[in-house]
Each structure stands twice: as C-alpha cells, then as structure tokens.
C-alpha cells in the first residue's frame, strides 16, 4: 500500500506534464495572438513555463523517489541523522535567487513596451466603461473630442490594422477592465482617471473585448467587439457611422445590421 501512495505522488508530475502537453493540441491554449507585442508575452509565458515545469518535475520526482526509496517498511538502512548542511542551503538559496533575478530583469522590456513606451500618435478613440457596456467615442472629422461631430458607438470598437492605436480608457461608475485576449492587452478602467492603452493589430477580423474586473451584477454582460479592418475600410465605416448619426430623415432602406 505504501508504494501505492508513492505512485500517487508520481502521478502528479506525470499527469501534470501530460495535461500541459495535451492541452495545446486539444484547443485549450492561449488564444490566437494578433498583436505586435504579444509574442513577447507569449514567449515569456513559454519561458517561465519551461523553467517552472523543469523545477516542478524535478521536485515532484524527488518527492516521489524519496517516498519510494525511504519507505519505512522496506528501507533497511539506518536513518541518516543530520540536521542539515550549510553548503547545500547556500547552494539552493543562491541558485534560485540568481534564476529569479534573471527572470525579473529579462521581462522588463516587454512590460515597458506594453505599459510605458506610449507611441507618439493622436488618440484614436476614447473608451468609457459603464455598467454594463463600453461607450466608445471617436473624435470625428475635426480630430478633436468634445465637439458636435464626435462619433458615438457602443460595444463596437473599430481600429485600422497595422497602425499604432492609442486609446484613452475611462470609467463612468465603477472599476472595469479592458481585456483584449487576442491582443494580450488588459488594463483596468478607473473612475476619475484617464489611462492610455496602446497596441498594434496585425490581422484583420473580429475579436472579443472582455470586461475582466468585477463591475457588478451584469459583469458577464459587458461584452464588446473589436473589429480590426484595413485603413480604408475603417475610414469608410467611421464616415458612414458619422453620417448615420446626423440623420434628420429615416434612411431609405431600414438599416438592419
């Protein structure tokens, strides 16, 4: 029976590694990355995964092996009576310390790219979160916010592809979080603060905009859509939306979608 318990502990690293090996193929993995900076985050994820994976396997195997080998029923050797070893302690303090310092320094650049090196471009849109929707405002033809020609849309963020996109994030009521899984972007929207968010999308398509900070009972309802489109299609969409907003007569054909 003792061996059974040892095998149970062996199952942890075996099944753990198996789960992580199986998941990407089965579709349970990081969503597709379409951003310019996302590779750095994914790369770091894989890097830390490999490193921690190695430590995980090594320590869990050690646990299993010690349990197996030093099972009191079968181990006939006398107990190694020791209170520890200074050298070993120093070794296994310094080695992880060095690794951890390395990890810390290694990732600084990625962090700075996403959160600190703001591109020098005009603000494309202002996203105001409220319970429970994303109110989005484009500056309109005059390129300025807070004028009559601002273009208002809800839950439907359009951006041009392959451009530096700068967005101002605001909140009207409580905390929200602007999460674009496919762009590896997440930033809380804080009432009373204007927070810049920037990214660059490489592929066109429609992607989810998720609220990732609890914002009340309808938190799950707060779904937006990010449409990445070519610059011309984006301009056209913006112009159409702006025109529709100025309608003084019902359009000829009932707009449906």
């Amino acid at each position: 029976m003792n061996k059974f318990w040892c095998l149970l502990f062996l199952a942890v690293p075996v099944l753990g590694v198996a789960a992580f090996a199986w998941a990407p193929g089965a579709g349970y993995w990081l969503p597709r990355d379409i951003s310019d900076h996302g590779w750095q985050i994914d790369h770091l994820f894989y890097f830390v995964l490999t490193l921690t994976g190695a430590v995980f396997v090594a320590t869990e195997l050690a646990l299993f092996w010690f349990a197996w080998k030093y099972d009191g029923r079968t181990n006939m050797q006398p107990v190694r009576f020791t209170h520890g070893s200074h050298d070993v302690e120093v070794l296994w303090t310094l080695a992880p310390a060095a690794t951890l310092v390395f990890i810390a320094i290694y990732q600084m650049n990625a962090w700075a790219d996403v959160k600190m090196r703001q591109p020098d471009v005009p603000v494309l849109a202002e996203v105001t979160a409220r319970q429970f929707e994303w109110r989005i405002r484009y500056p309109g033809a005059d390129g300025r916010f807070d004028t009559l020609d601002d273009v208002h849309v809800v839950n439907d963020l359009h951006v041009p592809v392959d451009r530096d996109i700068l967005i101002t994030l605001k909140s009207q009521d409580v905390l929200h979080s602007f999460f674009l899984p496919n762009l590896r972007i997440k930033q809380d929207a804080v009432p009373g603060m204007k927070i810049p968010v920037w990214f660059r999308a490489r592929d066109v398509g429609e992607f989810d905009l998720v609220c990732a900070e609890l914002c009340g009972w309808g938190h799950y309802k707060m779904k937006g859509r990010l449409t990445v489109q070519s610059a011309s299609a984006f301009q056209q969409w913006l112009a159409e939306t702006a025109a529709a907003q100025e309608a003084t007569q019902e359009p000829e054909v009932e707009e449906s979608e």
Binding site: R117, Q118, F145, T168, K194, P196
Partner: peptide, 9 residues
C-alpha cells in the same frame, strides 16, 4: 487632447 498619465514617447 487630454493629457496622458505617462508621457513617454
């Protein structure tokens, strides 16, 4: 346009 929190180009 509104001033940003971090102004680093």
């Amino acid at each position: 346009p509104p001033r940003q929190l971090t102004q680093r180009s």
